[in-house]
């Protein structure tokens, strides 16, 4: 219980900071929509091929937007030296990591929840297939777990904006593969049997990445 309270305190702190500074969700959302616009011209989708192209377009947009969002969340801590405050606060490193991961999940999730209907309108799809919520939640959890540890790691380097995607994308590929496949099944209305397999894979990847990252986090932010 104590653990949950500590995690929530960190998440709430991030939400308040974001509500007052508006540094993450709004610009990242605009960026995600811009990626959709670029894809429109890059792929010139028609109504017949859109269900095949859509999962890729959506997840490329989320991956790029997600990496910006995750980066911001730690650059902010670093710029103001508040990472030291976090480290000095009487919470375990695991709680700190979980809190950071959840606030990243919330911010990226918020971007995704707006991007999906915008995408559907722009490409004439069903507005928001309900099953997509499950895929978004599971995939973004895994993405945030990998993103949070590597963002904490990348703030220790010069050129951190470019180092973060270089570190993170190769590792997060399994999550992206499963997310794209599950989304494809939803958007093409294929039989749901295969989708369960992909969702199970996503759960497995989430657990693996969360556990490894939570343990490794201690070594990343120590001084």
């Amino acid at each position: 219980m104590e653990f949950a309270r500590q995690v929530w305190t960190i998440v709430w702190k991030d939400i308040i900071v974001e509500a007052r500074s508006r540094q993450i969700v709004a610009p990242v959302l605009v960026f995600a929509v811009l990626v959709l616009v670029i894809f429109n011209f890059a792929l010139s989708p028609t109504s017949s091929n859109i269900p095949q192209l859509a999962p890729g377009v959506l997840w490329v947009s989320f991956t790029f937007a997600g990496v910006l969002s995750v980066n911001r969340s730690f650059v902010l801590e670093n710029e103001n030296g508040s990472i030291l405050g976090l480290m000095l606060s009487p919470v375990s490193r695991e709680a700190l990591f979980t809190g950071k991961m959840l606030s990243n999940l919330i911010f990226i999730g918020a971007v995704e929840l707006v991007t999906v209907p915008v995408f559907s309108v722009l490409f004439n799809q069903e507005l928001f297939p309900p099953m997509l919520l499950v895929v978004l939640f599971l995939a973004t959890s895994g993405f945030s777990a990998v993103g949070s540890i590597f963002a904490a790691l990348a703030i220790n380097t010069r050129f951190r904006e470019i180092m973060l995607p270089l570190l993170m994308f190769p590792v997060v590929v399994p999550v992206i593969i499963s997310a794209v496949k599950a989304t494809e099944i939803i958007l093409t209305s294929s039989p749901a049997g295969d989708m369960i397999k992909w969702l199970e894979m996503l759960v497995a990847f989430d657990l693996i990445f969360f556990l490894i990252a939570a343990v490794a986090f201690e070594y990343v932010i120590e001084e």
């Binding site: 220790n156 380097t157 270089l166 190769p170 490894i212 990252a213 490794a216 990343v220």
Partner: peptide, 26 residues
């Protein structure tokens, strides 16, 4: 790259060690 671009040498080793572990497991 993380080793080469780290802000301090000692930190670079530690960060790289974390990547060496996560990368291999991945």
């Amino acid at each position: 790259m993380v080793r080469a671009y780290s802000s301090e040498a000692g930190r670079g080793s530690r960060m790289a060690a974390v990547i060496g572990i996560i990368g291999f497991a991945d």
